[in-house]
Design a protein around this nucleic acid. Structure first.
Lengths: 111, 111
DNA sequence: CTATTATATTAGAACATTCAAATATATAAA
DNA sequence: TTTATATATTTGAATGTTCTAATATAATAG
């Protein structure tokens, strides 16, 4: 049951399971950005950003190329955006459902 | 940057980031199954299975209904399968790429 | 060479997740 | 009731992840 492939799949999703890493992928939607450009957008410590980039690199979500001292990152396989958008459909529905449950509970009194 | 929605997205992916939970979703592809049926398929401790089912329930990936003493689980939103299949395309390509890199390194000698 | 800029890596503390075992709950049958 | 069966929850130890701070590397300019 816990075949290497199952474990790999789990790693794939774990890699996406962090808000900073999702923010990085979002930021790279329109094209490559350097680490310092990402730093401005994502508003996070240099070393934290680098660590998260390392995880995305390890899982081949992103690749980098150097230009003088600047390193530019880009998304390796643009299909991830289709994938992230499909995910969005699903979790938006999940959230809406929670909302509806809340509304059903709320309207009368708070108890 | 770390808005509640960003954090929710991350939780969504984290929930998928475990081989047992992925195996549960896979097992439920063809329709509902009881916990004991899942236990046979996934070959895991009762309490561990229950704990993972709880996480999938919390994130609304699955719902359950009771029939006498048996509890049947089903996938809440079948679009997750489209989504999981898209994910598969992506990580299979990622794996292939790693394979190619390995082959490029191997053929000559081991050093 | 040395200093500077950009980025990466490492080490350890803080925090979160998972697992295993024990216990709890819910239903039905006897 | 009591017992049996199916599943869920709780607790603490083991393990894994993230963050912070410090240090390392790589390229260039001076």
């Amino acid at each position: 049951m816990d075949s290497p492939l199952h474990l790999y799949k789990a790693e794939f999703f774990k890699t996406l399971g962090h808000s900073v890493r999702l923010a990085i992928l979002d930021a790279l939607r329109e094209g490559p950005l350097s680490v310092s450009e990402l730093q401005v957008i994502i508003q996070t410590e240099q070393s934290i950003l680098s660590q998260h980039l390392a995880k995305l690199r390890a899982m081949k979500f992103v690749s980098s190329r150097r230009e003088k001292t600047t390193i530019y990152y880009h998304v390796h396989d643009r299909e991830v955006y289709q994938f992230l958008d499909l995910a969005k459909n699903i979790y938006v529905r999940q959230l809406q459902q929670s909302q509806e449950m809340l509304k059903e509970l709320m309207p009368s009194d708070i108890d």
